[in-house]
Design a protein around this nucleic acid. Structure first.
Lengths: 224, 224
DNA sequence: CCGATACGGAACGGGACCGTATCGATGACT
DNA sequence: AGTCATCGATACGGTCCCGTTCCGTATCGG
């Protein structure tokens, strides 16, 4: 019964498994152990360890924790990985600023650091490779990380359409991919996986050029 | 000595390890076993098995081959995986056609089928997740698969710049990512990973709108 | 035919990991 | 003070895999 109660607390708490239940007897679970375990998984993934190579023993070792302490919280690796995904709160969506153009730039700049930098990139790579084998893991990552960013981007694009800065004759999801995709391609497909500082602004200006209803750039005025 | 000679043939032959050497005594190696092993690896990867989960025993089992037959050809899993990457010949870059626009569409259409469809997508996901852990594997995949496609795309873009269909004020590598990236984003980031049939044409038209020097689309003629 | 090398299959000792159990110590409740 | 679930650590039997070695058979060159 204790096991079952504990496991349900995992789901109910939404990521931090060791909630202190008021009526609970005995020594309470260590919150430090929780975060050490989650952090150990993230750290190992960041170092390029694939999920298949992530053993419970190795996770416990990395976390400086007994194996039983891990199994007391999660019934197995799958459940642990799901909670790791749930722990990936997007820190803060960049606030709505001045122009749609500037908001897009700051959104992509946010993606450049937090989304496709070291840890974010390793996570994305690792999770993306397990789409077929562990669909639930992918679903959780998508719901926690990808969806929020996509929605934020869509919001800015909708504002652009309403403002008249963006033409309304394109599917907004496709348009969103037009901004995110090149960042992704650069982070995953090229040999150097770091993203240049100027990339977000360049990308936004380049794409907006094609979708805004306004004037042509100076370089093209002579052409006919 | 036989072992060493055999291993060098692997490298010299460029992917098919069991070359029949004229002066060789005894029963020659089975070419069928070679392809069965390579095919087994690709098939397993296609089913979502990560490289870490790919054991030599499982590969031999899937190929219907004794384990010794695998070890006779490759010294270990790493070497085998490298040859698997080398076996991934890009079947045929789409021929240069009429307009730059049409060539871009057929190039992306090619990518849609062969590059990001079932097998290609699984391979990309799997290899991309091992960038940190096995850089040589990534380098080989990049050299065999990605580079050829990127060069083909760059060639078309250069032709577009020469023709005047594409303005010359943008980095061509960035421009290439502008075409490939959205395909990649759609294949990797969305929940449905299949690519719509109309995506290549839509994408090319959308991007070209922003980078061609010519007239504006009809919707924008009235604007300032 | 004969020597040599290949084949699929089975077995080997060694190692890593699984999930569980047990240990003495720890610490927050009653 | 007493109770009791937790802690890190260690050990267990079981499973899978590694890389090698042997088997009996098949298939080449000489």
């Amino acid at each position: 019964m204790n096991r079952a109660a504990g496991d349900f607390e995992v789901a109910a708490d939404g990521g931090q498994p060791a909630a202190v239940v008021p009526g609970r007897r005995g020594r309470p679970r260590s919150a430090a152990a929780d975060s050490a375990i989650i952090e150990a998984v993230l750290s190992l993934i960041e170092d390029g360890v694939s999920i298949a190579e992530l053993s419970m023993e190795r996770i416990a070792r990395e976390a400086g924790v007994g194996k039983a302490t891990v199994y007391r919280r999660w019934p197995g690796k799958n459940a642990l990985m799901l909670d790791v995904m749930r722990s990936l709160d997007v820190p803060s969506p960049p606030a709505a600023g001045l122009s749609v153009r500037d908001d897009l730039v700051s959104l992509l700049e946010f993606l450049r650091h937090r989304g496709l930098a070291k840890r974010g990139s390793a996570l994305l790579r690792t999770v993306v490779s397990h789409v077929r084998a562990q669909p639930e893991l992918w679903a959780e990552y998508h719901a926690t990380v990808i969806r929020a960013r996509h929605e934020a981007l869509l919001g800015v694009l909708r504002r652009g359409v309403a403002n008249g800065e963006i033409r309304a004759d394109h599917d907004l999801d496709t348009l969103a991919d037009l901004f995110v995709g090149p960042m992704l391609a650069r982070a995953l497909l090229h040999e150097r996986t770091d993203l240049p500082e100027a990339l977000p602004a360049d990308l936004v200006d380049l794409v907006l050029e094609g979708v805004r209803p306004g004037a042509r750039p100076a370089a093209a005025t002579a052409a006919g």
